[in-house]
Design a protein around this nucleic acid. Structure first.
Lengths: 231, 231
DNA sequence: ACATCCATGTCGCTT
DNA sequence: AAGCGACGTGGATGT
């Protein structure tokens, strides 16, 4: 990885056009040739970048550019889309290279998967007398997170989200439409379960006869793991 | 901005839990206290990060950690969500600080807004005899991108996307449901217009009687700007 | 502050 | 390879 601090301007041409006026920035050249242009603020997203696979070439400025103070031109071209990034460097303030090696990568401990497992184990959170049929019940348009049976014997399809948004309600609605056309499992009612349900999502769900269920992740984890959360 | 190359392991606890095993990485500390952890590959997204507003504190390792080879602990806590990032540093290979100043920021030349403007100007792309009513036609649940009238005098609601996905069809469906309840403008037909329409989105749209229209951005721009695209 | 919608989204998984 | 959904989505914008 090469780190360059430089006064530069940047132009991007690809799906859109963008320009960065002259200022001091960090240029990060990764081992795969990709380039990130970072300022000293904002979020983790660079001001501008080129993703791999891409090729970096450097060139001398032409006379006009040199007259404007440009000392180097970096040109990064994406190998498939032909997106192009041009960095016009005026002054290099720092330049260092470092051998990092291959990263072993991130180990994630998911949330939605865990919630699904917990709700399957604690299926009576749907209401007394509910029984689990199965997780990831497959339909033609994708898997329903949880399928259960209520005390009356009707099927219950559960869509599970960390944050209950309008999209999740639409998704569950599509599943319910499809499943209610299948005489083997119809009638199917819907439950929209999430740690947090947005008001608009709740309104839409209830308007469509879908029940909303707010889940307390910590409490569910506490039931699951008796020694935790006793304080 | 401070740049540190270090052998380190990283733990994140917040909306999920995640762990990075010991390896050599770049730690970028921005002026606002935010921290990015980058490897020498992947895309512009860091392996791990903390967004501002957050606070970085450093500490000495405890005896166990010291015995495991840790020489410094960095602790970054988000000031609102209490999300936490812990960097256990084993060895520092590089450490430099740089004054970058405030960045003037990115100037973008947009896409969807431009597409909307072009389609409004070239409204007959919807079909001969169509007339524009207005862009951003306001409804109770949000603005319809373009409202037009077809030759028979019926209203046409256009949802515009760069990439036509199933979400866009759902969005247009909600608009159409609402607008068709308004006797002043009913009946309203729908057109789903995008540079590219995914097969599933097309199927869903056509199943609901929504017409799909694939837009050629370059051609539309060429009509708009006569001197371009003549080659 | 909240809700909505776009994104050069990126990422990971399935077909 | 292409499609599809989730994301610690982030970020802008209008209410």
């Amino acid at each position: 990885m090469r780190l360059v601090i430089a006064r530069c301007s940047v132009d991007y041409a690809g799906r859109l056009s963008a320009h960065l006026p002259l200022a001091t920035r960090l240029l990060m050249v990764k081992g795969d040739g990709s380039l990130l242009v970072h300022s000293d603020g904002g979020s983790y997203k660079p001001l501008n970048w080129m993703s791999p696979p891409c090729t970096l070439t450097t060139a001398e400025p032409d006379d006009d550019q040199a007259a404007a103070g440009v000392t180097q031109i970096w040109n990064v071209v994406h190998q498939k889309t032909a997106d192009e990034l041009i960095v016009s460097i005026h002054e290099v303030l720092h330049d260092s290279s470092h051998e990092l090696g291959i990263d072993p990568g991130l180990v994630k401990d998911g949330v939605e998967a865990h919630l699904q497992k917990l709700l399957a184990e604690q299926i009576e959170l749907l209401g007394e007398g509910h029984r689990l049929v199965r997780r990831e019940y497959m339909t033609a348009i994708g898997p329903v997170d949880i399928l259960a049976i209520d005390p009356s014997g009707s099927s219950v399809a559960v869509e599970l989200k960390r944050r209950g948004d309008i999209d999740g309600v639409e998704q569950l609605t599509r599943y319910l439409e499809l499943m209610n056309r299948d005489p083997r499992i119809a009638p199917v009612t819907g439950v929209f379960a999430a740690q947090e349900i947005k008001p608009q999502a709740r309104t839409l769900a209830e308007d469509r006869g879908i029940r909303c269920l707010v889940l307390d992740y910590d409490a569910m984890r506490g039931v699951d793991d008796g020694h935790a959360r006793l304080f």
